[in-house]
Write a protein that binds this DNA or RNA. Structure first.
Lengths: 209, 209, 209, 209
DNA sequence: TGATAACCGAGACGGTACGTCACGTCTTTAA
DNA sequence: TTAAAGACGTGACGTACCGTCTCGGTTATCA
């Protein structure tokens, strides 16, 4: 994601800015863009506010004014990546629902930015902002999970005694293992196999092909 | 008459292997212990060689003499945690084998030290020493995986078309998700449920209870 | 029509000279004072930036921000010692002029600080900042020397063929030998004897008593 | 009953005086040569035992075994430079004697090694070994000085009230200033001028040309 | 002719200092 | 108020030498 900042700075010293008009949005955007670049370059650990500010051609103070910690800064930069997870999918079949849930996560994990986000979420000791962001989104909202399970149960697809969260989290955990430990891309074929395993694992009898 | 000088022969007398004062075992032990404490306290990022040396009451130089990087240091400290993973279990049933494979990993992940190790392994961008250690062990040796699958196949328990690695990695991924994102302990009950899901997911027909 | 881009113009807006928080005078003063103490204690070699900062109760960074090298630091600390050398004396007689030139140098060399400065100036291999400071001042400005000689020549006091620099430097060299090798104080009586020798050495005939 | 403990008697078996492997002359020579090179390269400050040992292809321990301090090491390396100063010259004239005294010092100061020695002698705060060596030799032995003065007095060449030491030290100080502050070579012509000044400075009437 | 004591290379070890980097807070000027 | 700029104390980085120490292994001398 590249952000283009219009180079409106005049060459001379007068520096005529609209009086009272805060330039805040440009600074904010430039910083967040820089964060994303730095995250991809150096990872979460190894990201320094100083370098971010330098890259954004913005002063360190202006960064700290907005985000008090490195965590908050990264969290803010990541917010945009996760806007499409809020939808609770209803495709009519459990396989479809599982796939609909896993696919955007896999897609996220296929991008370098997404990998960085996951890594950041997992690396922080304290349950800080980044963890919150990631858990809130990657962790798949509770409603989605329970409604998927409820619908599947109504269709007789959900085996008794299976914890819905455990099933979904297994799916997500597998993706995480794939990209962070195996360092392999979560391809479509691979995802098919995964959904297949989990689907059979939680199905009451034989799943419909 | 040709004079051949072998390129690899050093000019002086051959270096003795055991020359010089040997490294003190006490120093090594103190440092590794300190690393484990610091890891639990501050995590992988946030672990500083300086503090480790201070806590071990050892000189910084003595640390750097042994381990050139922070990664290597942490990796060394973690080696000991993982000595019981090398056994390839053969329990007679697929469920037993899966459990035998997952249980020590879960046990590791139940300790603060183990959590720190996992976090460290996942947080590093470069596939450095820590990643190697973790991958080598947590990533379950390839032989174990394939032999488990082979035996299950021979018993007719393994569904055709299921990638052995994918199955096992799903198991491991779920444990990682549990401890690092959910921040919950991988209890025995929880592990039972997990093994159940994965077992059914890869079984040919109905698994034997 | 050719577009000429001046090479020295920076790309952004022109840097303001007085931007940012100004350097604290208290810090500067504390450091220089500490340097003088350390110089007296440990000499030029053996002076460490770390200890200076510690003694000044100031951070090492704040020292390096101001003075890039140990040399520059010492040179700065010594500047103040030398403010009274700039005057070119005209006492009416050659003896008076010589004395007026030698006296403040001797006075400087009578203080521990001054001895340290001389030592520092002589010990540095490269002709660095300290050497510059010392040479500039202790080395007696060229104008002073030549004007003294010119006036003496006009009065008929200066023997033909005597290099003015050589004469003055002999004076200074004797003082250096006195304090650094003999490690004795350049007393008034001693200085009288020295001036007497040099004066007779460069006089045309018999000097006027 | 009095208990007398003989101070010098060792408790164990009587120490053999000359037992053990003697120190290798080759090692000693190699080290001293290396010191001279390093002194010329890096000066007295900036000379490190570690580098000396490395250059001499000798172990650090072997250096410390012989010379306890850096000072002692340098002093030893310099000893050889100064063997020709012990002679008290008697040339028949004061000018000749002065020249005979000054010439070898100037010659020493014309070599890089000699400059390093002078610098070392002047830079040390404590009157350590190097200072001792230099003072003992460059400082011109007291007997030489007094005998030169005595002979000159007998010839009627020495002005009453002139301190012999002061005269000679002025000569030496001028050479030091020449090579260390002016950083110029003490050429023959220059030395002639110097001797001329000092000679006239201490002569009773007019010096004999 | 051995024992023995010192030499010698090698390198560990606790120190101190190096000069640099990033941190997060602060003070100052200008817009 | 926002901003740019930069000072400031803090703490860590990884490296270089310091001088001392423990090691094997070697060699000359003396009993």
């Amino acid at each position: 994601m590249t952000l283009v900042i219009p180079a409106s700075t005049p060459p001379g010293p007068p520096r005529r800015r609209d009086a009272g008009r805060p330039r805040g949005a440009a600074v904010t955007a430039a910083v967040l863009a820089a964060v994303r670049v730095e995250l991809a370059d150096a990872g979460f650990e190894g990201l320094s506010v100083e370098r971010v500010a330098r890259r954004a051609e913005v002063n360190k103070t202006s960064v700290y004014r907005r985000w008090p910690t490195r965590e908050a800064l990264v969290a803010a930069a990541m917010e945009g990546l996760l806007d499409d997870f809020s939808v609770s999918p209803d495709t009519g079949s459990l396989r479809g629902d599982l796939y609909a849930l896993a696919a955007p996560i896999a897609e996220l994990a296929a991008q370098p930015d997404g990998v960085a986000l996951l890594r950041a979420a997992l690396s922080t000791t304290a349950s800080g902002d980044v963890g919150t962001v990631a858990s809130r989104r990657v962790g798949a909202p509770a409603e989605s999970v329970s409604s998927i399970a409820a619908r599947a149960r109504a269709r007789g697809e959900w085996r008794d005694g299976v914890d819905p969260q455990q099933a979904i989290f297994t799916l997500v955990g597998a993706i995480i293992h794939r990209v962070l430990l195996e360092r392999a891309a979560p391809t479509g074929e691979w995802l098919d196999g995964l959904v297949d395993i989990v689907l059979r694992g939680i199905s009451a009898t034989k799943p419909q092909p």
